[in-house]
Amino acid sequence: MTGALFRRWLKLDANHRFLLLTAPVVMFLLAFFVVPLLSILIVSLWRTESYQLIIDWNLDNYAAVLTEPSYRTFMLRSLTSALIVSVVCVALAWPIAYFVIRYGGRYKLLLVLGLAVPFLTGIVLRVIALQGVLGPIGLLNLGLMQLGLQPVQSLMFTKTATVVGLIYLFLPFVTTAIYLSLLNFDFKLLDAAKVFGAGNIRAFWEVTWPLNWVGTVIGFALTFVPCLAESVTPRFLGGADGTLYGMAMGSQFSATGTWALGAAMGVVLFVVAGLTLFAISRLVDIKRSGFTGAGSRD
């Protein structure tokens, strides 16, 4: 039986084999990625009334998301915090990754894997752990009081606390992306630059930075896009004034039961994230970036 199947397989041409091999993956993506996304798109064109979804095709939800000041405020807050978090993450990740590559020796991989240790716990636990540091009687304030200084009341439950929490959550992703980029980087190029008279700073900005631009941009994108939809961190750290777009969107599907509006918010977020990725991709010229995963360099 198996032999017969194998013989039939051998008789297939390359196109049919390709179709057969990819069909399960395509079906999986259709069922669990495309269909849910389409259902969100459809629901966004209906309306909700007293927790009932009513099939009444209209664009009112999009009009509300795009014109109501509250949703625009949530989006603006999310874009601002995502930008701050991504830039700070890149700024912090670079020296960490650089240090690991240059001085990590045979422990390089171990040091990078160490960055993943916080991921052994859930996101909620990690965020709550931050409450223990930033809270009114958290480690930071206890430390200040030990030094005879006044505790800072406004550390916790602020937008700053949310940003700190998000940096903590996403720094490992950016560091890993930059580390992998630096792993492919030939440091002899720096020696060459110095031979021709470049100082350390000039060699970094004109050689290391541009040749590792792809890793940096990937790290940036890996932080920026998920940050736009973040809801757990602002919920626990952000305080009464810290509602972000993802948090407001999530409550449409749980607390308020206004699913159609939530679906429209989701579609708008999808478009904004897509446009961001498109803009980021325009910043990258794979062939000039030193990225070895793009095939042979000519």
Binding site: T48, E49, S50, Y51, E68, P69, S70, Y71, T73, F74, T243, A248, S251, Q252, T256, G257, T258, L261
Partner: peptide, 14 residues
Amino acid sequence: SPEKWERVWSNMEA
């Protein structure tokens, strides 16, 4: 009216 209440809550949060 959950819809009206949602708007009140969103306006307050923003």
